[in-house]
């Protein structure tokens, strides 16, 4: 029992670290594209570690299935949304540049 709790605590602390890193990155990075990089760290690793820790703590198979489906959907949604946001901003920037040149 003790070992299980220790592993849960370690996983949650690592997850919290990645969330802090993501938030600080979103706050401090200079432009949108580097902020997207910080966001994916929190999405993939932060939520992943916390999901692993809570799955270990809760332990019932149905809940574990749900927790991992949450993580899987977040992986899919966050990588796609990063690409979409970046493309959106790039098209906007290009349009503005063309206007300034022309």
């Amino acid at each position: 029992m003790m070992i299980k709790e220790v592993i849960t605590v370690i996983l949650l602390v690592v997850g919290c670290f990645f969330f802090l890193a993501g938030t600080l990155g979103v706050l401090r990075f200079p432009d949108l594209f580097s902020r997207l990089h910080a966001l994916t760290k929190a999405d993939n690793l932060g939520l992943g570690f916390i999901a692993a820790g809570m799955a270990l703590h809760i332990g019932s198979p149905w809940a574990v299935l749900k927790i991992f489906s949450i993580w899987f959907f977040t992986l899919l949604a966050s990588s796609t949304s990063c690409y979409l946001i970046a493309r959106f901003q790039k098209e906007k920037d290009q349009a503005r540049n063309r206007k300034e040149e022309g």
């Binding site: 949650l12 997850g15 969330f19 993501g22 938030t23 979103v26 949108l32 902020r35 997207l36 966001l39 929190a42 999405d43 932060g46 939520l47 916390i50 999901a51 809570m54 703590h57 809760i58 019932s60 149905w62 809940a63 749900k66 927790i67 949450i70 977040t74 966050s78 949304s81 990063c82 946001i85 959106f88 901003q89 906007k92």
Partner: peptide, 30 residues
């Protein structure tokens, strides 16, 4: 830009999910 604000909102959503997962373990309410 709007995209900056939107990506921060996405970060909030993920953080909220993490909070809910931990709350589910804390309140023992699946």
């Amino acid at each position: 830009t709007v995209a900056d604000r939107l990506l921060t909102t996405q970060l909030f959503g993920t953080t909220g999910m993490a909070i809910l997962l931990v709350l589910a373990g804390y309140l023992k309410d699946l």
